[in-house]
Design a protein around this nucleic acid. Structure first.
Lengths: 203, 203
DNA sequence: GCCGGTCTTAATTAAATAGTTAAACCAGGT
DNA sequence: ACCTGGTTTAACTATTTAATTAAGACCGGC
C-alpha cells in the first residue's frame, strides 16, 4: 500500500524530472512523462492534479538541489581559498552528474519570472550572498587578497563553473569535441578554474 | 510596393525576434507575434509559411549576431592581451543591448539539438576556436603568459562575460539588486573581467 | 478606371494536448 | 469471501493554437 504508493509517486517524479529538465516546462508533455514512468496519463493526474502542480514540485526540489552545495560550503569552517576550491570542485562534480540542472533553473527563471515571485522555494535559497561578501571583505582586511568587488568576484566564480554546462552544445561544436572529450574536459575543469580564480586574487 | 513590403516584413521579424527571444520556440505564440507586429495571423503566414520557418530565420540572424564580435576581434591586428580586453568589453557591450541573446541561443541549442545539425548557419560560425588556440600557444612560446590549456581558458572567458546575463534573474535575487543596479554592475563588469583573466595569465 | 499585389476580417479546419470520467481489474489485508 | 485503494483502459471533453480559406477592401502605378 503505502510502500507501493510512494514508489510510484517517486517513479513519476523521476520521470517528470527527466522530461522537464530536458525540455523545459512549455515543451514538456504530460503523456511523455507518463510513458517514461511506465504508467498512464490518468494516474498522473491522480497523483498530481495538473502539469503546473507537478512542475512546481520538480522545480522546488531542483532549486533546493541547485543552491545546497554553495550554501553549505560557505558556512563550513575552512580557510577562504579552500572554500573557493571546494565551491568550484563540488559544484562541477554535482553538475556533471546532472548537466541539465543549471540550464533548467536559469531558463525557467528567465522565461517565467512571475512563477518565481510567489514561490517561496526560490526566495529561501537566495540569501547566501552576504555570507560570501563578508568573507571576501575579511580576507581583504587581513591582507590576504587584493581589493576586489565581491559581487563581481561572485559572478566570475559562478560563471566559470556553470557556463560550460549551460553552453554544452555550443562548446562541443566550437571545440569540435564529442561527449566523451567534454566529460574529460570537465573533470580537469575544477583544477583550472580554482587556479585561475586564486591567481587573480593574489595581492 | 517593394518599400512597403520590406517594411512590414521587417516589422514581423522584429516582433518575432522579441517573442522568440523572450519565450523560446515552444512557448512563443504566433498570435502574439502578429499582435506585436500590429498585423493579423493571416498575414503572418502570408509572409512566412509556418512557425518553424519564421523561427529558422530569426535563429539564423541571431546566431550570426552572437558570434560576429568574437570572430572579428580574434582576426584583428592587436596584441593578445588587448584582444582579450576587446573580446570581453565588446561582448558585454553587445549583450547589454540584447540581454536575452545568450539565453536564447544556448537554450534553443540545448532543447533542440536536432534542429541545429541540419542548420548551416550554426556550423558556419563555430569554427573560430583554432584561431584562439593558436594565439594562446604563440603567446606561451613567447613567454608572455604561463602555460594554460586554451580550451579551459576559452571557457573561462566566455563564462565570465556571458554568465551574468544568462543568470540575470537569479543574480538579481541573490545580490538583492534591481534592474538599475544590475545594469550599473554590468557596466563595470568588463574592467573586472579583463583584470581577472589577465592577472590569472601572468607568468 | 482597372489591375496586382498588399492587407484585413472572420470564419473555419486540423492537430496537439491537458484534463476528466466511469467501469473494471487486482492484490493485500481484514 | 470481500472490501479497499492503487491501477488500468479507453473513450471522451475542452482548450489552445497553428494553419487555411474565401471574400473583399485599400492603394499605387499603368
Amino acid at each position: 500500500m503505502s510502500a507501493i504508493a510512494v514508489s510510484t509517486e517517486e517513479t513519476i517524479l523521476e520521470a517528470a524530472r527527466k522530461v522537464f529538465m530536458q525540455k523545459g516546462f512549455a515543451a514538456a508533455r504530460m503523456c511523455e512523462i507518463a510513458k517514461i514512468a511506465g504508467i498512464n496519463q490518468a494516474l498522473l493526474h491522480y497523483y498530481f492534479r495538473s502539469k503546473d502542480r507537478l512542475f512546481e514540485v520538480i522545480f522546488a526540489q531542483q532549486s533546493q538541489n541547485f543552491y545546497a552545495n554553495i550554501i553549505s560550503i560557505l558556512h563550513s569552517d575552512v580557510p577562504f581559498f579552500e572554500k573557493l576550491r571546494l565551491m568550484i570542485a563540488k559544484e562541477i562534480e554535482k553538475i556533471s552528474s546532472a548537466p541539465y540542472l543549471p540550464m533548467f533553473i536559469l531558463n525557467e527563471m528567465h522565461s517565467n519570472p512571475e512563477r518565481m515571485q510567489c514561490n517561496g522555494s526560490v526566495d529561501r535559497n537566495t540569501h547566501f550572498f552576504k555570507t560570501f561578501s563578508d568573507l571576501v571583505e575579511k580576507e581583504y582586511e587581513a591582507g590576504r587578497i587584493r581589493k576586489v568587488c565581491p559581487q563581481q568576484l561572485f559572478l566570475s566564480i559562478m560563471g566559470i563553473t556553470m557556463f560550460p554546462f549551460l553552453a554544452q552544445p555550443m562548446i562541443k561544436m566550437a571545440l569540435e569535441i564529442d561527449g566523451k572529450s567534454f566529460e574529460q574536459l570537465m573533470q580537469e575543469r575544477a583544477e583550472h578554474a580554482s587556479e585561475l580564480i586564486i591567481r587573480s586574487l593574489q595581492v
